[in-house]
Write a protein that binds this DNA or RNA. Sequence first.
DNA 1: CCTACCGATCGGTAGG
DNA 2: CCTACCGATCGGTAGG
Lengths: 203, 203
Amino acid sequence: MMGAVSATGGYLKGRLRRQDILGAAIEVYAEAGYHGSSLREIAKRAGITHAGLIYYFPTKEALLAAVLEHRDTQDADRERFATTPPGREVLRRFITLAEHNVRNPGVVDLYARLAAEAVAADHPAHEYFQRHYRTARDIALKSFQALADRGELRDGVDPNATAVAFIALMDGLQVQWLTAAEDVDLVGILKSFVDNVLTSPLD
Amino acid sequence: MMGAVSATGGYLKGRLRRQDILGAAIEVYAEAGYHGSSLREIAKRAGITHAGLIYYFPTKEALLAAVLEHRDTQDADRERFATTPPGREVLRRFITLAEHNVRNPGVVDLYARLAAEAVAADHPAHEYFQRHYRTARDIALKSFQALADRGELRDGVDPNATAVAFIALMDGLQVQWLTAAEDVDLVGILKSFVDNVLTSPLD
DNA sequence: CCTACCGATCGGTAGG
DNA sequence: CCTACCGATCGGTAGG
């Protein structure tokens, strides 16, 4: 009786604990960055001691890796991006993602903080963000290229430059929006950027 | 004799010391952010002990304030921006600034790191960056507005949205460029953004 | 400007 | 998972 309950319960509890810890880590990374956050603070918000946290994630870096991996696998959006054929629909998904982000400032904070930190070549998330940017650029590029092929891009608009600019614009807007939300209509500006390179509005 | 020499010498030495410290601080902030940098590391690069540094700048925050102030006053560019009449010439200056930045990655690093950190409302540089963004946006807006008045903006291009986007684009490009320089033609993309909202190319 | 120090906090380990 | 601990590092102070 005790054995069965505690074994199953233990596994379930372990999984839930991990979720608690990841959730707390995302919160704290967003507020303080990776280097600026402590295992003790994350552990406290998860309701355990910092040694307890280390029982689940053996090092500070392992926890960061788990947070990044967690976001990637859980992010159903990412899969939808991959399966959507290049074109206007993909751009609409980017806008939808931005709308989602504006409703979840914590996620925006997390990425903005980590991306700036990870600029350093020896940061544990450096390669992650190199991949992240390359993937994002590729997805945008394929869509702008497809639109160019169909003659839906205005004359003189270069798909490559537009793709890089689009991703950069999303990131830059996020930092400005986080700094002074009332001054920046993040979604509106993204939309008008897209509308301005297309021959006809997005929707 | 001794008095005069040491008094003058002391003042000069003090000024030079402050320059050394500020230079070292800029370096370390760029590498590690503000929270991630230590007075000991900055002091070491300036050739003194951390207690010696505190003799010149009484707290960690005071040093950050001095670095920010130093950049603002020394930045001759900023003044030229203010005195240049709104229009194409101002946009050209932004491009020139970007070209300068690409040759000085340290400055870019400093701003990218601090801007992301300062998103937090309780960060000592938070208000500085709120002002910084507002000023940058205003300068860009005045120029895009002037161009709109003269009919030099393409149909449907909104000066306000374009100004915010332009500043966000500069920031976003910087982080992407710092993360993977070979993948991002920072200056080229800025130029094509501007050319794409104008009725005729910038230069 | 330095030596010497303080209390606080950090990531990680030992040993249960 | 916890208690208890380690060595390292932090910003700042005292006192010269």
